[in-house]
């Protein structure tokens, strides 16, 4: 498989704080990658740079061989994003939200047909003309999947998409997420839910203090418990080190 995303020597600092420190990462087309790490590890910053929302301080991101810094609009057209924020307008109906974002992504033909089809795939067609404000958290997340996949992106970036979802809603979200869109869509997900990620992902990354400290295919990891131990050893070691240096 070819790399769809190449991150080379990427660094980002906010003032004197380094959020990302010289990161290199290759992600192959169709891979499902989970990124773990404590708060402040740089996970969201990495995703925001990949989606061209923020510029790196150093280094490059290539998406399908296109430099993100030079052609951000082209890159944004290839990416769908799901977050704990829904990116939905509460006062618009589900259909109006999707039609609006379809137009933002330059979709002009057969908008209604495409919107109906994607609403059907996330089980919201019957409630298409209700305002988003009346939806439950789970329904809003399903609508945000529809919004993210509307323009048939090649890459799906997800930043803690399970936040605020109960067990049932999370399972439902996962089912819709995996069954909607093309199977060769590359999915990158930031999460704290090791069990769920272990079920659906091909590759697991652990980030800490702006660096990738662990990067293995799921097939190379013995079990969820083994991965959890690895995670805790990386995170706790650094926490201890920080404690000692602060002391």
């Amino acid at each position: 498989m070819d790399s769809i995303i190449s991150v080379r020597s990427l660094s980002k600092s906010f003032g004197r704080r380094n959020a990302l420190n010289n990161i290199d990462l290759e992600i192959k087309k169709g891979e499902i990658v989970a990124i773990f790490g404590p708060n402040g590890a740089g996970k969201t910053t990495l995703l925001k740079i990949m989606s061209t929302i923020i510029n790196p301080s150093k280094g490059t991101v290539l998406v399908n061989g296109i430099a993100a810094k030079e052609h951000p609009e082209k890159i944004r057209g290839m990416i769908g994003a799901i977050s704990h924020e829904t990116y939905l307008y509460d006062e618009l109906t589900a259909r109006e939200n999707l039609v609006f974002f379809a137009r933002m992504y330059g979709i002009e033909n057969d908008i209604d047909k495409r919107v109906d089809s994607i609403l059907k795939s996330v089980n919201l067609l019957k409630r298409a003309d209700e305002r988003a404000i009346s939806f439950s958290r789970g329904m809003k997340q399903r609508l945000s999947i529809a919004r993210a996949l509307l323009h048939q992106p090649e890459i799906l970036l997800m930043d803690e998409p399970y936040t605020g979802l109960d067990q049932h809603a999370a399972a439902n979200f996962e089912r819709v997420l995996m069954s909607t869109g093309d199977s060769d869509v590359t999915r990158i997900m930031i999460t704290h839910n090791i069990e769920r990620a272990f079920e659906i992902c091909d590759r697991m990354l652990i980030m800490d203090r702006g660096e990738i400290r662990f990067d293995k295919l799921k097939t190379e990891i013995e079990s969820v418990e083994h991965f959890r131990e690895q995670y805790l050893s990386i995170v706790e070691k650094d926490t201890d080190a920080e404690g000692i240096s602060n002391f």
Partner: peptide, 15 residues
Amino acid sequence: MENGCLEGLKLSPID
């Protein structure tokens, strides 16, 4: 700013 809508707009391929 509610629901991160501005970020949603910024993610769109528009100027």
